[in-house]
Design a protein around this nucleic acid. Structure first.
Lengths: 225, 225
DNA sequence: ATTACTATAGTGCGAGTAA
DNA sequence: TTTACTCGCACTATAGTAA
């Protein structure tokens, strides 16, 4: 749902509102007026507005006889994510992203998934080592979620989904990474874009090697290419 | 045409290619691979690629058995324009844009247009003074064309088009501005987004007041709100 | 003036498939 | 493998209009 909002009109609407100052305060904006600016019909703007509102990207506030509009936190985040992508293109020529991750105990499924040959074989081929000892679950800081979203714009290595015993396992993207100099990989399932947990695999037991426990924070360096 | 390219898939494609380094060198990119990354079908990526190519935004270069892709200058410009818009939203809190403009002699139509009551009345209402003495045509620097495109994302004041004597005069947007402290206005017709000439109107004869002639450069300050 | 409904025309997407 | 064709479905935009 929120993904779909990224394309087309809603995004252009958010941008127009942001340029009017909608990031920090409610702004006056009629559909007719915006339709002129955006070069579309009034009806389309009306549609986009309702869609943006129902997706929680903008909020209305009554103001006298007319209403005002302002972007919600989610709306601002969406725009900031776009901004970070472009900034990466034109400014950051770095080849890595660094996340501070807090070690958390996952639902335990990570290790099961990775153990499946369907994933394991592909990961080994990509990473150059056999992923073992389940996954390390790193919870990233809220302010880094936009950076994670930006990471997903990089190609990485596609890990194909597969079917097994009537269950289907979705596809995802894998990136090479390292923690404290130890080579590892980050697997991001395609269907969990909004999670704040990164699943890290390695060829050795990172908990032991780094002597870390739940709640500890480690620095994860993700390679973009 | 080029405007249409801004929406939807082609833009996402250009971004993906740019993140792979397509700004500065040819990159390998198959439609299947990109379709995974972008979450759409291979067919759609294929379509977007052909569209981007026919719009002159990307170019192909044969490379062995497969081909490589790189962004053209126009393609990079398109992305840079997007980038500048977002940067304005999040970084530049300034309320004005400054253009260095070279005084050129227009095709003489500007003054005729402005003289038409259909435009004149609207401009006077917006600017607070009666526009006189035709328009001053300022040619902006090539590197500022992206900034001009960014300017158009700001609401400004819509000037309606109208019909007269079987001719139709298109709508445009007017922004308040000043040159050397003299209040003026910039009128940008909706149908000429890619022109590098700004049409400036004022209540006095700017050529006389500023003692300027063709070829001279003046600084134009455009107010965004 | 404003927003939003309905109906219809148009565009985009992807499954299937050929080359 | 790769790219790109056809075609059917669904979504989107707009005109007309009501509230």
């Amino acid at each position: 749902m929120l993904d779909k909002a990224t394309d087309g009109g809603v995004l252009r609407l958010l941008r127009a509102l942001a340029l009017r100052g909608g990031l920090s305060r409610p702004v006056k904006a009629t559909t007719t007026e915006l339709s002129h600016q955006l070069g579309v019909s009034q009806q389309s703007v009306s549609l986009w507005m309702r869609k943006a509102a129902s997706d929680g990207l903008i909020g209305f506030e009554p103001a006298g006889r007319t209403r005002t509009v302002r972007l919600t936190e989610d709306g601002v985040d969406l725009l900031r994510r776009e901004y970070l992508t472009y900034r990466t293109i034109f400014e950051d020529q770095s080849s890595e992203m660094v996340f501070d991750g807090k070690l958390v105990t996952g639902i335990g499924e990570g290790s099961y998934y990775i153990g499946l040959d369907g994933y394991k074989d592909q990961l080994e081929k990509v990473l150059g080592f056999e992923p073992r000892f389940g996954t390390l679950n790193l919870q990233i800081k809220p302010e880094d979620k936009a950076m994670k979203a930006c990471l997903l714009e990089f190609p990485g290595f596609t890990i194909e989904g597969f079917e097994m015993e009537d269950r289907s396992f979705g596809e995802g993207t894998c990136y090479k990474a390292e923690i404290a100099g130890i080579a590892c990989g980050v697997m991001i399932p395609s269907r969990s874009h909004y999670s704040d947990v990164l699943e890290v695999v390695s060829h050795e037991c990172l908990r032991k090697a780094l002597k870390i426990n739940d709640g500890d924070t480690v620095q994860l360096k993700v390679f973009l290419s």
